[in-house]
Design a binder for these strands. Structure first.
Lengths: 358, 358
DNA sequence: TTGAAAGCGCTAACAG
DNA sequence: CTGTTAGCGCTTTCAA
């Protein structure tokens, strides 16, 4: 470390700077002002290219600022402007490609607008979701972009935000549809399309591993499932609709339940990656073949669908666009607070692979 | 929204509060002071349980603060204390379970200490890594916990931090070993163990899909690989050591290269999830069987190892502990700035599954 | 026991 | 063209 200090002081001397003592982490306007011998406001103006300041002074100040790599203190700016230029994002988990990709989309728009995003995971629990909301609000994010946890049935923690006019956007798993802008996919349509796809490929005993009943996506896809059955002229069998949560364990149990039925289904679709993969493992564990004995379709991402054997037919989301749209809705609120809540519906794609075609 | 406003005003009235106008997002000490009719400093002291303030006043103020759910403005605190209680974390990607889990570990310690973490992804590129460092420093994080991107060979952006005594911790993929505390695993040992494992199971033509040459983990595991070969009495064949980056595409190409050799390897181990899964796909695509024709071992997480077919023998990291240790090293720097940089080495585990046993 | 004032870094209205 | 001042929310001397 001695060497480093030597280098530092050398560097300081070369620039002929008075300040920049050891340990000084950040340069302030005051530092620059003292260095040059003008007032703080002159420095501030110069850096903001205020026309009042003489060109040479401006140049000189900007040069020094660059050399000392001055960056405005966001805390001071935040305090002053009462705006932190930070968005909080809450997702059910960070491992799933789905959310990571959405976050990238949000990030892109945020960056264009000069905003940062603070990411928090609810780990699919209501408790952590509430905590995340509280923590993010404590840090004075300007608003939140959220995908509900699987447990969330009570919305008090969001109602508080709505009451205070704090910008909020829901995506995928949503609530308070009329008060909060949201981005979703055509879940009803997706559920229906899967059902039709099974039917067209000769499957008649179609089962659905739905997620928690409280989730909007579960409900909508169930609607699609029912509509699909109807339009195929198939009867709905209650025992073929099983709810489970988004964990491997629970999904395995639910799959078992289906496979233990006196009359087994010949095809299953599941609501998310964990559910589908768990189903696949359980089916294989029992020595059943996919798709010959049981066909399988899921909602997953490209990468994992083609990783497993057989490759999985699945509904893929336009995840990146999901993020883009969510961020856009967010900034619409920031920039035009009076805009009415809008819901953006994106299209999904059913990508057919081996797991569902005999 | 009309209803919500009504409820808000009702709520306000019930509490008999003068302030809390529409649109007021956050309560300040000033608000509380005005409400009660004391000075700001009295409120501040009361909330900090300063002994000077009379018990009744203290109680009254604390009650009001709770009712109006006052939370101190972290921007103001940060400005004042010159400490944001925020840590920046930079990982190569967010999709891999490995990093998500490490982040959880970091988060746990951070939370205990009352710190927040800001997560950024380098997307395995140097460019985004540098940007992430700059952005995080701009937001005045107190320091960084970093896993290098695969491209990082130049460390200027970190040297700047080191020069300024900004707390820094590297994990897994590290550099500046003597100046910066770090957490790694016994990579040499892991590489050696895999090689021995292959040997013990009858494989003699052992190949290694190494990552980028500049990465510490690549180098160390290569050492282990070489040591392993030696202790088995096998000769090192240069054509069996192939470098590739951490993408599926590149890994597929590298695998092809191995499989195109006049004398193919009978076993391969790869450095990370993407590499291993790409290798698996390519091996299968060519109609080769695993493990009969080619055995496969990788560094992956539990979840994905058991997802694929055949289940994958792999080295798993104690990811959560990784995060815990990294965070601890970080706080050691915050709390005892003079401590010498320390390197923590964690143990890996070789979990044997079907992909490597005939 | 409490209040007034300064200062953390910054901008903007107001003076010169 | 440039400096002075006030204030964003908070803690902490210093005064009373």
């Amino acid at each position: 470390m001695g060497l480093l200090y030597f280098l530092l002081s050398l560097f300081t001397e070369l620039l002929g700077l008075k300040i920049m003592e050891k340990g000084k982490r950040h340069i302030s306007l005051k530092d620059l002002a003292q260095e040059i011998g003008v007032s703080i406001s002159t420095v501030s103006r110069a850096l903001n290219n205020h026309p009042d300041i003489s060109p040479e002074v401006t140049r000189k100040i900007q040069k020094l600022a660059a050399e000392m790599n001055y960056t405005p203190n966001p805390l001071a700016m935040g305090l002053l402007k009462q705006a932190t230029r930070t968005i909080g994002v809450i997702v059910p988990d960070l491992v799933t490609h789905f959310y990571s990709s959405i976050i990238s989309g949000i990030e892109q728009v945020a960056e264009e607008k000069g905003y940062f995003i603070l990411i928090a995971s609810s780990n699919e629990t209501l408790e952590k979701e509430i905590k995340a909301v509280d923590n993010l609000m404590k840090t004075r994010v300007e608003g939140l972009i959220v995908c509900l946890s699987q447990e969330t049935e009570n919305y008090d923690h969001f109602d508080r935000l709505i009451r205070n006019n704090i910008p909020l956007v829901f995506f995928d798993r949503i609530c308070r549809k009329d008060e909060v802008p949201s981005v979703v996919v055509d879940d009803v349509d997706a559920g229906k399309r899967i059902t039709l796809h099974f039917f067209e490929n000769g499957f008649r005993k179609i089962a659905y591993l739905a997620g928690p009943e409280n989730l909007s996506i579960s409900q909508e896809r169930t609607q699609g499932y029912l509509a699909g059955l109807k339009s195929c002229g198939l009867n709905f069998r209650p025992e073929f609709l099983v709810h489970c949560n988004m964990s491997s364990e629970d999904a395995t149990k639910a799959t078992s339940q289906l496979l233990d039925l006196p009359e087994k289904p010949d095809s299953i679709f599941g609501i998310n990656d964990y559910v589908v993969f768990a189903a696949m493992k359980e089916i294989k564990r029992r020595g059943l073949r996919i798709p010959e004995d049981i066909a399988l379709v899921g909602f997953t991402d490209e990468f994992h669908s083609t990783l497993v054997d057989p490759e999985l037919t699945s509904v893929t989301h336009p995840t990146f666009d999901f993020g883009l749209e969510a961020a856009r809705l967010f900034f619409r609120q920031i920039e035009h607070p009076e805009t009415k809540p809008e819901q953006v519906v994106l299209k999904t794609k059913l990508v057919v692979r081996k797991s569902s075609v005999k």
